[in-house]
Design a protein around this nucleic acid. Structure first.
Lengths: 227, 227
DNA sequence: GCCCGTTTGATTGTATACAATAATACACGT
DNA sequence: ACGTGTATTATTGTATACAATCAAACGGGC
Protein backbone atom coordinates (compact mmCIF):
# COMPACT_ATOMS: atom_id res chain seq x y z
CA UNK A 1 0.00 0.00 0.00
CA UNK A 2 2.62 2.56 -0.95
CA UNK A 3 1.08 5.95 -0.38
CA UNK A 4 2.14 9.57 -0.84
CA UNK A 5 5.24 8.81 -2.81
CA UNK A 6 5.32 12.22 -4.39
CA UNK A 7 3.93 14.66 -1.84
CA UNK A 8 4.70 17.91 -3.59
CA UNK A 9 6.19 20.11 -0.95
CA UNK A 10 3.37 19.93 1.57
CA UNK A 11 4.44 17.04 3.79
CA UNK A 12 1.31 16.33 5.76
CA UNK A 13 3.13 14.42 8.45
CA UNK A 14 5.26 17.24 9.79
CA UNK A 15 3.76 19.90 11.99
CA UNK A 16 4.95 22.58 9.61
CA UNK A 17 3.23 20.89 6.68
CA UNK A 18 -0.02 20.56 8.56
CA UNK A 19 0.06 24.18 9.69
CA UNK A 20 0.79 25.31 6.15
CA UNK A 21 -2.02 23.29 4.56
CA UNK A 22 -4.47 24.32 7.22
CA UNK A 23 -3.71 28.04 7.01
CA UNK A 24 -3.75 27.94 3.24
CA UNK A 25 -7.16 26.32 3.14
CA UNK A 26 -8.50 28.69 5.75
CA UNK A 27 -7.32 31.68 3.76
CA UNK A 28 -8.58 30.33 0.44
CA UNK A 29 -11.90 29.38 1.99
CA UNK A 30 -12.29 32.83 3.42
CA UNK A 31 -12.09 31.92 7.11
CA UNK A 32 -9.45 34.58 7.56
CA UNK A 33 -10.51 37.75 5.86
CA UNK A 34 -8.39 40.24 3.98
CA UNK A 35 -6.15 42.26 6.27
CA UNK A 36 -6.50 40.09 9.36
CA UNK A 37 -3.30 39.91 11.38
CA UNK A 38 -1.97 36.44 12.10
CA UNK A 39 0.04 36.15 15.31
CA UNK A 40 2.51 33.32 15.54
CA UNK A 41 1.68 32.46 19.14
CA UNK A 42 -2.07 32.57 18.63
CA UNK A 43 -1.94 30.30 15.58
CA UNK A 44 0.46 28.02 17.38
CA UNK A 45 -1.82 27.67 20.39
CA UNK A 46 -4.83 27.12 18.18
CA UNK A 47 -3.13 24.23 16.45
CA UNK A 48 -1.23 23.02 19.48
CA UNK A 49 2.28 23.64 18.20
CA UNK A 50 5.10 26.04 18.99
CA UNK A 51 6.11 29.08 17.00
CA UNK A 52 8.77 27.34 14.92
CA UNK A 53 6.54 25.36 12.55
CA UNK A 54 4.13 28.28 12.39
CA UNK A 55 6.90 30.60 11.29
CA UNK A 56 8.04 28.22 8.60
CA UNK A 57 4.50 27.95 7.29
CA UNK A 58 4.21 31.75 7.32
CA UNK A 59 7.29 32.06 5.15
CA UNK A 60 5.82 29.71 2.60
CA UNK A 61 2.48 31.45 2.58
CA UNK A 62 4.28 34.73 2.05
CA UNK A 63 6.06 33.33 -0.99
CA UNK A 64 2.74 32.24 -2.43
CA UNK A 65 1.44 35.73 -1.88
CA UNK A 66 -1.34 34.63 0.45
CA UNK A 67 -0.04 36.66 3.36
CA UNK A 68 2.19 39.70 3.58
CA UNK A 69 4.85 39.79 6.27
CA UNK A 70 6.06 43.17 7.44
CA UNK A 71 9.41 42.69 9.19
CA UNK A 72 9.27 42.98 12.96
CA UNK A 73 5.62 43.82 12.73
CA UNK A 74 3.34 41.04 11.69
CA UNK A 75 1.72 38.82 9.10
CA UNK A 76 -1.39 40.02 7.33
CA UNK A 77 -3.79 37.99 5.21
CA UNK A 78 -3.83 38.99 1.57
CA UNK A 79 -6.07 36.31 0.10
CA UNK A 80 -7.34 36.52 -3.43
CA UNK A 81 -9.72 39.10 -4.79
CA UNK A 82 -12.38 38.69 -7.44
CA UNK A 83 -9.99 40.25 -9.93
CA UNK A 84 -7.36 37.67 -8.99
CA UNK A 85 -9.85 34.89 -9.63
CA UNK A 86 -10.74 36.34 -13.01
CA UNK A 87 -7.08 36.71 -13.93
CA UNK A 88 -6.35 33.16 -12.89
CA UNK A 89 -9.10 31.83 -15.12
CA UNK A 90 -7.72 33.75 -18.09
CA UNK A 91 -4.20 32.49 -17.38
CA UNK A 92 -5.52 28.99 -16.89
CA UNK A 93 -7.43 29.14 -20.17
CA UNK A 94 -4.13 29.67 -21.96
CA UNK A 95 -2.00 27.34 -19.91
CA UNK A 96 -4.48 24.47 -19.75
CA UNK A 97 -4.72 24.73 -23.51
CA UNK A 98 -0.97 24.31 -23.64
CA UNK A 99 -1.09 21.42 -21.19
CA UNK A 100 -3.68 19.64 -23.33
CA UNK A 101 -1.58 20.22 -26.45
CA UNK A 102 1.51 18.78 -24.82
CA UNK A 103 -0.45 15.94 -23.26
CA UNK A 104 -1.19 14.62 -26.76
CA UNK A 105 2.45 13.65 -27.10
CA UNK A 106 3.33 12.87 -23.51
CA UNK A 107 0.39 11.13 -21.88
CA UNK A 108 1.07 7.60 -20.64
CA UNK A 109 -1.18 4.62 -21.04
CA UNK A 110 -1.91 4.62 -17.30
CA UNK A 111 -2.85 8.29 -17.30
CA UNK A 112 -5.11 7.81 -20.28
CA UNK A 113 -6.86 4.91 -18.60
CA UNK A 114 -7.38 6.85 -15.38
CA UNK A 115 -8.80 9.75 -17.37
CA UNK A 116 -11.29 7.50 -19.10
CA UNK A 117 -12.31 6.00 -15.78
CA UNK A 118 -12.58 9.49 -14.35
CA UNK A 119 -14.95 10.73 -17.02
CA UNK A 120 -17.01 7.57 -16.77
CA UNK A 121 -17.34 7.78 -13.00
CA UNK A 122 -18.13 11.47 -13.13
CA UNK A 123 -21.01 10.76 -15.48
CA UNK A 124 -22.48 8.45 -12.87
CA UNK A 125 -22.07 10.81 -9.93
CA UNK A 126 -23.44 13.67 -11.97
CA UNK A 127 -26.64 11.71 -12.56
CA UNK A 128 -26.89 11.00 -8.84
CA UNK A 129 -26.06 14.58 -7.89
CA UNK A 130 -23.13 13.64 -5.66
CA UNK A 131 -21.48 17.04 -5.49
CA UNK A 132 -18.58 16.00 -3.27
CA UNK A 133 -17.50 13.21 -5.61
CA UNK A 134 -17.97 15.43 -8.66
CA UNK A 135 -15.64 17.95 -7.09
CA UNK A 136 -12.99 15.35 -6.32
CA UNK A 137 -13.19 13.87 -9.82
CA UNK A 138 -12.91 17.30 -11.39
CA UNK A 139 -9.83 17.91 -9.25
CA UNK A 140 -8.30 14.68 -10.38
CA UNK A 141 -9.11 15.19 -14.05
CA UNK A 142 -7.27 18.46 -14.16
CA UNK A 143 -4.35 17.14 -12.13
CA UNK A 144 -4.05 14.27 -14.58
CA UNK A 145 -4.02 16.70 -17.46
CA UNK A 146 -1.23 18.69 -15.81
CA UNK A 147 0.83 15.59 -15.12
CA UNK A 148 0.25 14.33 -18.65
CA UNK A 149 1.70 17.52 -20.10
CA UNK A 150 5.13 16.16 -19.27
CA UNK A 151 6.26 19.55 -18.02
CA UNK A 152 7.23 19.88 -14.37
CA UNK A 153 7.07 23.65 -14.63
CA UNK A 154 3.62 23.79 -16.20
CA UNK A 155 2.28 21.12 -13.85
CA UNK A 156 3.52 22.96 -10.78
CA UNK A 157 2.02 26.22 -11.95
CA UNK A 158 -1.38 24.90 -12.86
CA UNK A 159 -1.70 22.93 -9.64
CA UNK A 160 -1.13 26.15 -7.73
CA UNK A 161 -3.80 28.03 -9.65
CA UNK A 162 -6.15 25.12 -9.31
CA UNK A 163 -5.78 25.33 -5.52
CA UNK A 164 -6.22 29.06 -5.50
CA UNK A 165 -9.67 29.01 -7.00
CA UNK A 166 -10.79 26.07 -4.88
CA UNK A 167 -13.58 27.93 -3.17
CA UNK A 168 -15.11 29.24 -6.36
CA UNK A 169 -14.80 25.87 -8.08
CA UNK A 170 -16.74 24.20 -5.29
CA UNK A 171 -19.60 26.59 -5.85
CA UNK A 172 -19.43 26.41 -9.63
CA UNK A 173 -19.54 22.63 -9.87
CA UNK A 174 -22.52 22.42 -7.54
CA UNK A 175 -24.68 24.28 -10.01
CA UNK A 176 -27.26 22.13 -11.73
CA UNK A 177 -26.15 23.21 -15.19
CA UNK A 178 -22.38 23.50 -14.94
CA UNK A 179 -21.60 20.14 -13.37
CA UNK A 180 -22.86 17.98 -16.27
CA UNK A 181 -21.63 20.41 -18.92
CA UNK A 182 -18.16 20.44 -17.37
CA UNK A 183 -17.94 16.69 -17.58
CA UNK A 184 -19.00 16.69 -21.22
CA UNK A 185 -16.18 19.09 -21.92
CA UNK A 186 -13.73 16.83 -20.09
CA UNK A 187 -14.86 14.01 -22.32
CA UNK A 188 -14.26 16.08 -25.44
CA UNK A 189 -10.75 17.03 -24.31
CA UNK A 190 -10.01 13.40 -23.58
CA UNK A 191 -11.23 12.38 -27.05
CA UNK A 192 -8.97 14.95 -28.71
CA UNK A 193 -5.99 13.66 -26.76
CA UNK A 194 -6.82 10.07 -27.63
CA UNK A 195 -7.11 11.01 -31.30
CA UNK A 196 -3.70 12.69 -31.12
CA UNK A 197 -5.14 16.01 -32.24
CA UNK A 198 -3.18 18.78 -30.51
CA UNK A 199 -5.13 21.66 -32.08
CA UNK A 200 -8.48 20.31 -30.94
CA UNK A 201 -7.09 19.44 -27.51
CA UNK A 202 -5.78 22.94 -26.98
CA UNK A 203 -8.90 24.62 -28.30
CA UNK A 204 -11.25 22.47 -26.21
CA UNK A 205 -9.25 22.89 -23.01
CA UNK A 206 -9.13 26.61 -23.66
CA UNK A 207 -12.88 26.77 -24.19
CA UNK A 208 -13.44 24.65 -21.10
CA UNK A 209 -11.86 27.33 -18.96
CA UNK A 210 -13.62 30.16 -20.74
CA UNK A 211 -16.93 28.42 -20.17
CA UNK A 212 -16.17 27.94 -16.49
CA UNK A 213 -15.24 31.62 -16.34
CA UNK A 214 -18.47 32.73 -18.00
CA UNK A 215 -20.50 30.48 -15.74
CA UNK A 216 -18.93 32.10 -12.68
CA UNK A 217 -19.83 35.55 -13.89
CA UNK A 218 -23.30 34.70 -15.14
CA UNK A 219 -24.25 33.07 -11.85
CA UNK A 220 -22.93 36.02 -9.91
CA UNK A 221 -20.33 33.93 -8.07
CA UNK A 222 -17.83 36.70 -8.61
CA UNK A 223 -18.34 40.18 -9.84
CA UNK A 224 -17.48 40.88 -13.49
CA UNK A 225 -14.61 42.99 -14.67
CA UNK A 226 -15.44 46.65 -14.30
CA UNK A 227 -14.44 48.94 -17.10
CA UNK B 1 15.68 58.61 -1.11
CA UNK B 2 12.85 56.19 -0.39
CA UNK B 3 14.08 52.74 -1.27
CA UNK B 4 12.65 49.23 -1.29
CA UNK B 5 9.10 50.25 -0.62
CA UNK B 6 7.70 47.14 -2.20
CA UNK B 7 10.20 44.38 -1.45
CA UNK B 8 8.25 41.45 -2.78
CA UNK B 9 8.70 38.75 -0.20
CA UNK B 10 12.48 38.70 -0.13
CA UNK B 11 13.29 41.11 2.71
CA UNK B 12 16.98 41.65 2.25
CA UNK B 13 17.48 43.02 5.75
CA UNK B 14 16.57 39.90 7.68
CA UNK B 15 18.98 37.03 7.89
CA UNK B 16 16.36 34.70 6.49
CA UNK B 17 15.86 36.93 3.47
CA UNK B 18 19.56 37.12 2.78
CA UNK B 19 20.02 33.39 3.09
CA UNK B 20 17.09 32.81 0.75
CA UNK B 21 18.29 35.22 -1.93
CA UNK B 22 21.80 33.92 -1.73
CA UNK B 23 20.89 30.26 -1.99
CA UNK B 24 18.47 30.95 -4.79
CA UNK B 25 21.07 32.77 -6.83
CA UNK B 26 23.65 30.11 -6.15
CA UNK B 27 21.30 27.39 -7.33
CA UNK B 28 20.14 29.32 -10.40
CA UNK B 29 23.71 30.22 -11.29
CA UNK B 30 24.74 26.62 -11.02
CA UNK B 31 27.06 26.92 -8.02
CA UNK B 32 25.20 24.07 -6.39
CA UNK B 33 24.72 21.28 -8.85
CA UNK B 34 21.76 18.98 -9.24
CA UNK B 35 21.44 16.50 -6.41
CA UNK B 36 23.84 18.18 -4.00
CA UNK B 37 22.76 17.85 -0.39
CA UNK B 38 22.41 21.07 1.57
CA UNK B 39 23.00 20.74 5.30
CA UNK B 40 21.44 23.32 7.55
CA UNK B 41 24.46 23.63 9.82
CA UNK B 42 26.96 23.83 6.97
CA UNK B 43 25.02 26.55 5.15
CA UNK B 44 24.53 28.36 8.42
CA UNK B 45 28.21 28.37 9.23
CA UNK B 46 29.10 29.43 5.71
CA UNK B 47 26.84 32.46 6.02
CA UNK B 48 27.46 33.05 9.70
CA UNK B 49 23.92 32.42 10.93
CA UNK B 50 22.17 29.77 12.97
CA UNK B 51 19.92 27.03 11.68
CA UNK B 52 16.66 28.93 12.13
CA UNK B 53 16.93 31.39 9.24
CA UNK B 54 18.46 28.68 7.07
CA UNK B 55 15.52 26.39 7.70
CA UNK B 56 13.03 29.10 6.83
CA UNK B 57 14.89 29.80 3.60
CA UNK B 58 14.90 26.07 2.82
CA UNK B 59 11.13 25.91 3.17
CA UNK B 60 10.73 28.72 0.69
CA UNK B 61 13.14 27.21 -1.78
CA UNK B 62 11.23 23.96 -1.51
CA UNK B 63 7.98 25.71 -2.38
CA UNK B 64 9.62 27.20 -5.45
CA UNK B 65 10.75 23.75 -6.44
CA UNK B 66 14.44 24.63 -6.36
CA UNK B 67 15.23 22.09 -3.68
CA UNK B 68 13.54 18.92 -2.57
CA UNK B 69 13.27 18.26 1.14
CA UNK B 70 12.92 14.66 2.25
CA UNK B 71 11.55 14.67 5.80
CA UNK B 72 14.08 13.80 8.49
CA UNK B 73 16.64 13.21 5.80
CA UNK B 74 17.85 16.27 3.98
CA UNK B 75 17.52 18.96 1.37
CA UNK B 76 18.66 18.25 -2.17
CA UNK B 77 19.21 20.72 -4.98
CA UNK B 78 16.79 20.30 -7.85
CA UNK B 79 17.67 23.30 -9.96
CA UNK B 80 16.33 23.69 -13.46
CA UNK B 81 17.09 21.49 -16.42
CA UNK B 82 17.40 22.45 -20.06
CA UNK B 83 13.88 21.16 -20.56
CA UNK B 84 12.65 23.41 -17.76
CA UNK B 85 14.28 26.39 -19.44
CA UNK B 86 12.68 25.53 -22.75
CA UNK B 87 9.28 25.10 -21.09
CA UNK B 88 9.61 28.40 -19.29
CA UNK B 89 10.31 30.22 -22.54
CA UNK B 90 7.21 28.71 -24.13
CA UNK B 91 5.09 29.64 -21.12
CA UNK B 92 6.61 33.09 -21.06
CA UNK B 93 5.91 33.56 -24.77
CA UNK B 94 2.23 33.13 -24.03
CA UNK B 95 2.07 34.97 -20.76
CA UNK B 96 4.22 37.92 -21.81
CA UNK B 97 1.94 38.25 -24.80
CA UNK B 98 -0.96 38.47 -22.39
CA UNK B 99 0.90 40.96 -20.20
CA UNK B 100 1.56 43.20 -23.20
CA UNK B 101 -2.09 42.98 -24.22
CA UNK B 102 -3.28 43.97 -20.78
CA UNK B 103 -0.63 46.66 -20.48
CA UNK B 104 -2.25 48.53 -23.35
CA UNK B 105 -5.18 49.33 -21.06
CA UNK B 106 -3.44 49.49 -17.71
CA UNK B 107 -0.07 51.12 -18.16
CA UNK B 108 0.42 54.37 -16.25
CA UNK B 109 2.05 57.51 -17.57
CA UNK B 110 5.03 56.97 -15.26
CA UNK B 111 5.53 53.40 -16.43
CA UNK B 112 5.33 54.47 -20.05
CA UNK B 113 7.92 57.17 -19.49
CA UNK B 114 10.29 54.79 -17.76
CA UNK B 115 9.89 52.31 -20.60
CA UNK B 116 10.79 54.95 -23.15
CA UNK B 117 13.81 55.97 -21.13
CA UNK B 118 14.74 52.33 -20.77
CA UNK B 119 14.72 51.66 -24.50
CA UNK B 120 16.63 54.85 -25.17
CA UNK B 121 19.31 54.07 -22.61
CA UNK B 122 19.61 50.50 -23.79
CA UNK B 123 20.32 51.71 -27.31
CA UNK B 124 23.25 53.69 -25.95
CA UNK B 125 24.72 50.89 -23.86
CA UNK B 126 24.28 48.46 -26.72
CA UNK B 127 26.43 50.66 -28.94
CA UNK B 128 29.07 50.80 -26.24
CA UNK B 129 28.87 47.07 -25.54
CA UNK B 130 28.14 47.50 -21.82
CA UNK B 131 26.82 44.01 -21.15
CA UNK B 132 26.11 44.53 -17.46
CA UNK B 133 23.94 47.58 -18.07
CA UNK B 134 22.18 45.89 -20.98
CA UNK B 135 21.29 43.03 -18.69
CA UNK B 136 19.94 45.34 -15.99
CA UNK B 137 17.89 47.34 -18.48
CA UNK B 138 16.48 44.19 -20.00
CA UNK B 139 15.50 43.08 -16.50
CA UNK B 140 13.78 46.33 -15.84
CA UNK B 141 11.97 46.46 -19.17
CA UNK B 142 10.33 43.15 -18.55
CA UNK B 143 9.51 43.98 -14.94
CA UNK B 144 7.86 47.17 -16.11
CA UNK B 145 5.82 45.21 -18.60
CA UNK B 146 4.67 42.84 -15.87
CA UNK B 147 3.74 45.66 -13.54
CA UNK B 148 1.94 47.49 -16.34
CA UNK B 149 -0.27 44.48 -16.95
CA UNK B 150 -2.24 45.51 -13.90
CA UNK B 151 -2.48 41.89 -12.75
CA UNK B 152 -0.86 40.95 -9.46
CA UNK B 153 -1.12 37.28 -10.35
CA UNK B 154 0.46 37.59 -13.79
CA UNK B 155 3.16 39.93 -12.52
CA UNK B 156 4.11 37.56 -9.70
CA UNK B 157 4.28 34.63 -12.05
CA UNK B 158 6.34 36.27 -14.75
CA UNK B 159 8.81 37.71 -12.25
CA UNK B 160 9.44 34.22 -10.96
CA UNK B 161 10.08 32.83 -14.43
CA UNK B 162 12.27 35.78 -15.26
CA UNK B 163 14.44 34.98 -12.25
CA UNK B 164 14.56 31.30 -13.08
CA UNK B 165 16.20 31.79 -16.45
CA UNK B 166 18.60 34.43 -15.14
CA UNK B 167 21.71 32.49 -15.99
CA UNK B 168 20.73 31.76 -19.55
CA UNK B 169 19.57 35.33 -20.10
CA UNK B 170 22.94 36.67 -19.03
CA UNK B 171 24.60 34.56 -21.69
CA UNK B 172 22.03 35.32 -24.35
CA UNK B 173 22.17 39.08 -24.02
CA UNK B 174 25.95 39.12 -24.21
CA UNK B 175 25.88 37.76 -27.74
CA UNK B 176 26.83 40.30 -30.39
CA UNK B 177 23.67 39.70 -32.38
CA UNK B 178 20.96 39.14 -29.78
CA UNK B 179 21.59 42.20 -27.59
CA UNK B 180 20.77 44.84 -30.22
CA UNK B 181 17.97 42.77 -31.76
CA UNK B 182 16.36 42.31 -28.35
CA UNK B 183 16.26 46.03 -27.78
CA UNK B 184 14.70 46.65 -31.18
CA UNK B 185 11.97 44.24 -30.22
CA UNK B 186 11.44 46.04 -26.93
CA UNK B 187 11.00 49.22 -28.88
CA UNK B 188 8.40 47.63 -31.13
CA UNK B 189 6.43 46.32 -28.15
CA UNK B 190 6.55 49.75 -26.57
CA UNK B 191 5.27 51.36 -29.77
CA UNK B 192 2.34 48.96 -29.93
CA UNK B 193 1.43 49.75 -26.33
CA UNK B 194 1.70 53.47 -26.97
CA UNK B 195 -0.53 53.12 -30.03
CA UNK B 196 -3.09 51.23 -27.92
CA UNK B 197 -2.93 48.24 -30.20
CA UNK B 198 -3.45 45.10 -28.07
CA UNK B 199 -3.16 42.62 -30.93
CA UNK B 200 0.19 43.97 -32.06
CA UNK B 201 1.42 44.22 -28.49
CA UNK B 202 0.58 40.61 -27.80
CA UNK B 203 1.98 39.34 -31.07
CA UNK B 204 5.24 41.28 -30.71
CA UNK B 205 5.78 40.25 -27.10
CA UNK B 206 5.06 36.67 -28.08
CA UNK B 207 7.53 36.82 -30.95
CA UNK B 208 10.10 38.48 -28.70
CA UNK B 209 10.15 35.40 -26.49
CA UNK B 210 10.15 32.98 -29.40
CA UNK B 211 13.13 34.80 -30.88
CA UNK B 212 14.98 34.66 -27.57
CA UNK B 213 14.16 30.97 -27.43
CA UNK B 214 15.46 30.32 -30.94
CA UNK B 215 18.59 32.31 -30.23
CA UNK B 216 19.32 30.14 -27.19
CA UNK B 217 19.00 26.97 -29.20
CA UNK B 218 20.87 28.21 -32.28
CA UNK B 219 23.81 29.36 -30.20
CA UNK B 220 23.94 26.07 -28.33
CA UNK B 221 23.27 27.70 -24.97
CA UNK B 222 20.86 24.90 -24.16
CA UNK B 223 20.24 21.67 -25.95
CA UNK B 224 17.19 21.52 -28.22
CA UNK B 225 14.12 19.44 -27.56
CA UNK B 226 14.78 15.80 -28.35
CA UNK B 227 12.04 13.89 -30.06
C1' DG C 1 31.59 -15.34 4.74
C1' DC C 2 26.96 -13.60 4.94
C1' DC C 3 22.70 -12.05 6.98
C1' DC C 4 20.24 -9.55 10.33
C1' DG C 5 19.50 -7.02 14.59
C1' DT C 6 21.54 -3.45 17.49
C1' DT C 7 24.04 0.46 18.41
C1' DT C 8 25.89 4.76 17.36
C1' DG C 9 26.37 9.06 15.05
C1' DA C 10 24.70 12.58 12.26
C1' DT C 11 20.87 15.33 10.79
C1' DT C 12 16.48 17.09 10.83
C1' DG C 13 11.99 18.41 13.58
C1' DT C 14 10.29 20.98 17.36
C1' DA C 15 10.30 23.76 21.46
C1' DT C 16 12.01 27.34 24.12
C1' DA C 17 15.08 31.10 25.56
C1' DC C 18 16.92 35.42 24.53
C1' DA C 19 17.58 39.76 21.58
C1' DA C 20 15.82 43.36 18.70
C1' DT C 21 12.24 46.00 17.10
C1' DA C 22 7.98 48.64 16.94
C1' DA C 23 3.70 50.43 18.87
C1' DT C 24 1.51 52.21 22.74
C1' DA C 25 0.98 54.53 27.12
C1' DC C 26 2.50 57.71 30.17
C1' DA C 27 4.78 61.55 32.33
C1' DC C 28 6.80 65.77 31.88
C1' DG C 29 7.45 70.41 30.28
C1' DT C 30 5.64 74.16 27.97
C1' DA D 1 -4.38 71.10 26.49
C1' DC D 2 -0.80 69.81 23.50
C1' DG D 3 3.52 67.94 21.94
C1' DT D 4 7.60 65.41 22.90
C1' DG D 5 10.51 62.14 24.78
C1' DT D 6 10.83 58.01 27.50
C1' DA D 7 9.35 53.66 29.46
C1' DT D 8 6.66 49.65 28.94
C1' DT D 9 4.84 45.87 26.59
C1' DA D 10 3.80 42.93 22.94
C1' DT D 11 5.57 40.73 18.91
C1' DT D 12 8.78 39.22 15.79
C1' DG D 13 13.88 37.74 14.71
C1' DT D 14 17.46 34.70 15.96
C1' DA D 15 19.99 31.29 18.55
C1' DT D 16 20.20 27.22 21.03
C1' DA D 17 18.60 23.07 23.48
C1' DC D 18 16.29 18.85 23.22
C1' DA D 19 13.61 15.02 20.79
C1' DA D 20 12.82 12.09 16.87
C1' DT D 21 14.40 9.92 12.92
C1' DC D 22 17.38 7.85 9.62
C1' DA D 23 21.56 5.53 7.99
C1' DA D 24 25.64 3.38 8.36
C1' DA D 25 28.88 0.82 11.24
C1' DC D 26 29.36 -2.94 14.13
C1' DG D 27 28.87 -7.50 16.00
C1' DG D 28 26.84 -11.90 16.95
C1' DG D 29 24.69 -16.00 15.10
C1' DC D 30 24.33 -19.25 11.45
Amino acid sequence: MEEDVKEGASDKYSLRGRVFSRLREDILNGKYEEGVELREIAIGEELGVSRTPVREAFRQLELEGLIRIIPNKGAYVVGISDKDVRDIYILRSRLEGLAARWAVDHITKEQLEEMEENVYLAKFHTLKGHTEQIFELDNRFHELLYEASGSKILEHQLKDYHQYVLRIRKKTLSSKARGPQSNLEHEAILEAIKNKNPDDAERLAHEHMINAYKNMIDNGLIKPEEK
